[in-house]
């Protein structure tokens, strides 16, 4: 029997791994909602006029951008119980994603909000809108369009980072594949897991790339002023992807 690839095991593993997808999706969707809501809140605090709050949000963002997600998962799942806080694997996973990706999302939202020309806020305020109304009706709807491409990249990284949850025994793809590998003494399950990741990530990568190239092509029209602002925070955000650190 070929210990590297085996057709029979391939079929078995495929079914086994596909069955983990609901769990992966659950963690991803909850993680995404929590991370991006938290990120939006953080970014608004970061841009608020209350200096202590602003600094606090900044410190949080730096801290969680500086921490490896793998460490965070392990800390939440194995460390916090020593402080009397016991979370299940899934909850730990979602919390870790929210804490870490919230920090990245906050930076993306901040950049998106700041990319909206100051004149927009002024026009809104001059019409009698409060700061909150101007944000809600004028700034955020425009910022959201700018942050879709970078957030798509974040989502891709998040998909890959669910694999880190294998160390806190979330029954996701990698965890299940590794278990199966132990049983069949064959690397085929890993190949299957890889294929499943790729099925989800590669189309998203294409979509993100397409959005970015479209953004570059859009031309402003009318008047001498204007121009399409964009969010240039993409590059270093890839550091959120720490899948390579898996032991």
């Amino acid at each position: 029997m070929n210990a590297f690839f085996n057709g029979e095991i391939f079929k078995e593993s495929l079914w086994l791994l596909v069955k983990t997808l609901p769990t992966v999706f659950e963690v991803l969707i909850l993680g995404l909602i929590c991370a991006w809501s938290w990120g939006l809140i953080l970014s608004l605090i970061r841009l608020s006029h209350v200096r202590p709050l602003r600094y606090l949000a900044g410190a949080y963002i730096d801290l969680f951008r500086g921490l490896p997600l793998l460490l965070l998962f392990i800390f939440i799942y194995y460390g916090l119980p020593h402080a009397g806080i016991r979370l299940g694997p899934l909850a730990s996973g979602v919390l870790g994603i929210a804490l870490c990706y919230g920090a990245y999302a906050a930076e993306i939202f901040r950049a998106g909000i700041q990319a909206i020309p100051k004149g927009q806020t002024e026009a809104a305020r001059s019409l009698g809108m409060t700061h909150g109304q101007a944000m809600r009706h004028v700034i955020l709807p425009q910022a959201v369009r700018l942050v879709v491409p970078p957030l798509t990249n974040e989502f891709i990284a998040m998909i890959k980072d669910t694999s880190l949850m294998s160390v806190i025994s979330v029954p996701e793809l990698l965890f299940t594949a590794k278990e199966k590998m132990g049983v069949v003494v064959n690397s085929t399950p890993l190949t299957v897991a890889a294929l499943i990741y790729i099925v989800f990530t590669v189309p998203l990568i294409r979509v993100a790339a397409r959005m970015e190239s479209q953004r570059g092509r859009r031309k402003p029209r009318g008047g001498k002023s204007g121009g399409t602002p964009s969010v240039e925070v993409g590059g270093d955000l890839q550091t959120a992807d720490v899948a390579g650190q898996l032991p």
């Binding site: 020309p117 004149g119 927009q120 002024e122 004028v138 709807p141 425009q142 008047g223 002023s225």
Partner: peptide, 11 residues
């Protein structure tokens, strides 16, 4: 108030 750069809401 009306501004030099119009500042219409583009969306």
């Amino acid at each position: 108030m009306v501004f030099q750069s119009f500042n219409l809401f583009p969306h």
